[in-house]
Simulated assay, not measured.
Amino acid sequence: MKQFAFPKYERLLKRSEFVQFTNARQKIHTAHFILLWTYTEDSTLKIGITVSRKVGNSVIRNRVKRLVREFYRLNKSRFVMAHYNIIAKKGAEQLDFQRLSRELANVLERLHK
């Protein structure tokens, strides 16, 4: 069961960690998400999730974050060792887990190419 965990050391928590993505040249846009990533010297896998107020109120934003965290937790092996920031666009609140998973899985496949 530990392989499906999402411990704190795999999360981007500090503002300074998110700021490193401001000039990220590596990004992929989809209909509902923007995936930014940077490779790091320590070769660790970390993920941050950003959902702005444009997406909805706090209940909706937290739901989107929960769905993205669940996708990450179940698909950790698809991620390359890097730091990621997944930004939800307006309209992401309408996705169910199946559609969200399909969209993010396609992004990760494009990333591997």
Rank of each mutant, 00 (worst) to 15 (best):
P7W: 10
L104Y: 09
M1A: 09
H112N: 12
L67C: 01
Y39N: 12
R102K: 15
A5C: 07
V59P: 02
E10W: 03
K8R: 10
N85W: 06
H29E: 11
W37M: 09
R99L: 10
K89T: 09
L108A: 06
A24K: 01
L111R: 13
E109D: 12
F4Y: 15
A88F: 05
L95Q: 05
F71H: 13
A24N: 06
F79V: 11
I86A: 10
V80I: 09
S43C: 10
F33A: 09
Q20V: 11
H83I: 06
V68Y: 09
R66N: 13
I49F: 15
V80D: 05
G48F: 07
K113D: 09
K46N: 03
N106V: 04
V68H: 09
K76V: 07
R78K: 12
I28D: 05
R69D: 05
D42L: 06
L12Q: 02
K65W: 06
I28R: 06
T30P: 01
Y84H: 08
T44E: 15
F21K: 00
R53F: 00
N75C: 13
K65F: 03
P7K: 03
E70T: 12
Y9D: 12
G48L: 07
L74A: 12
P7T: 05
G48E: 07
V59N: 03
Y72R: 00
F71E: 07
R78H: 03
K76A: 08
I47S: 02
I86E: 07
K65P: 08
T40L: 14
T30Q: 01
K14M: 02
H83N: 15
R110W: 08
K90T: 14
R11D: 02
N75H: 15
V19L: 13
Q20K: 05
V59Q: 02
L36Q: 15
A31F: 13
I87T: 04
R11K: 14
I87P: 02
S52T: 15
Q3A: 00
K65Y: 06
I60Q: 02
K2F: 06
Y84Q: 07
I60M: 07
L111C: 08
R110V: 04
S101N: 15
N106M: 08
L74P: 03
Q26G: 00
L12V: 03
A24M: 01
L111W: 10
R78D: 08
K54M: 08
A92N: 11
V68R: 05
L108T: 04
V51R: 05
F18A: 04
V59G: 02
L36W: 04
Y9P: 04
R11Q: 06
F18N: 06
R69S: 12
R63C: 06
R63E: 10
S101W: 08
L104N: 10
F4I: 03
S52Y: 04
H83R: 15
R11G: 01
N23H: 12
I47K: 02
Q20N: 03
P7I: 10
L67Q: 14
L104K: 09
R61Q: 13
K14Y: 08
Y72W: 10
A105H: 00
H83Q: 11
K76N: 11
